[in-house]
């Protein structure tokens, strides 16, 4: 399928990959957040632990999660290629940096934001996901069924101010990344219409704020609860 590889490796093709993987991740974040918010259920972690267990043992979810990793990887690699090309498209830099108030800060710093988020993801995976996966968690029994107690790990982590603070700050950057990424994904797909684009832009901002705030509120609450 030479035409296909040629198409997706071209300038618009690469952007298309960014857009589609980005949109998938945007959806993933909603589901992830919905699960995580159960940490705040106030039930000592029961809802969260049952949810985490079920997620880990549902074959469909498992399949999707591999896809998720793959898309994150594609998003990162594609992003690196794009950024490198973009740098070489202007080898001699301007002496005066762009004096442009009309395009957003986030839109001009997606690569930087992406790197920060990548660092976060690595820390996040090492801190939680890895521990959840290789079974180093204590057990907890609800209604006669034994579950791994992930909640305990999370609540311990978020009781440390540095850890919780790191999470909150990273979520701010995530919010900025999403604030451009959301509407940009639609633009790249060619979906721009004077009726709908203003709505998409507003929705993007709302989404970024809600997702970033939703994720950020968890460490804050858990830290405060102690």
């Amino acid at each position: 399928m030479s035409w296909f590889t040629q198409s997706i490796s071209g300038t618009i093709g690469k952007k298309l990959l960014m857009s589609l993987t980005g949109l998938f991740l945007i959806l993933f974040l909603v589901i992830h957040l919905a699960g995580n918010l159960q940490l705040l259920a106030g039930d000592g972690g029961k809802a969260f632990n049952i949810y985490a267990y079920n997620m880990a043992h549902n074959p469909l979810i498992k399949f999707v999660s591999y896809g998720n990793f793959f898309f994150i990887l594609v998003h990162i690699i594609d992003g690196i290629i794009l950024t490198r090309q973009n740098k070489s498209a202007r080898k001699v830099k301007y002496a005066v940096s762009t004096n442009d108030s009309k395009s957003s800060w986030a839109s001009k710093n997606m690569a930087l934001l992406g790197i920060i988020i990548l660092v976060f993801i690595i820390a996040h995976l090492a801190g939680f996901w890895y521990k959840f996966k290789n079974g180093s968690l204590a057990d907890v029994v609800y209604d006669g069924v034994t579950y791994p107690n992930g909640y305990e790990v999370v609540s311990f982590a978020f009781s440390q101010p540095l850890y919780a603070g790191f999470y909150v700050i990273c979520m701010v950057f995530l919010g900025f990344h999403l604030s451009h990424g959301f509407s940009s994904a639609f633009q790249t797909l060619g979906l721009n219409h004077k009726k709908y684009t203003p709505f998409i832009k507003k929705l993007g901002v709302l989404y970024s704020i809600l997702v970033a705030a939703g994720f950020a509120i968890i460490p804050i609450v858990m830290y405060l609860k102690g």
């Binding site: 300038t11 952007k15 794009l82 973009n86 442009d100 009309k102 395009s103 839109s107 790249t188």
Partner: peptide
């Protein structure tokens, strides 16, 4: 030329 990252600086 580089890739478009939808900053909108061009239209501005």
């Amino acid at each position: 030329f580089g890739n478009c990252t939808n900053t909108g600086a061009c239209s501005a």
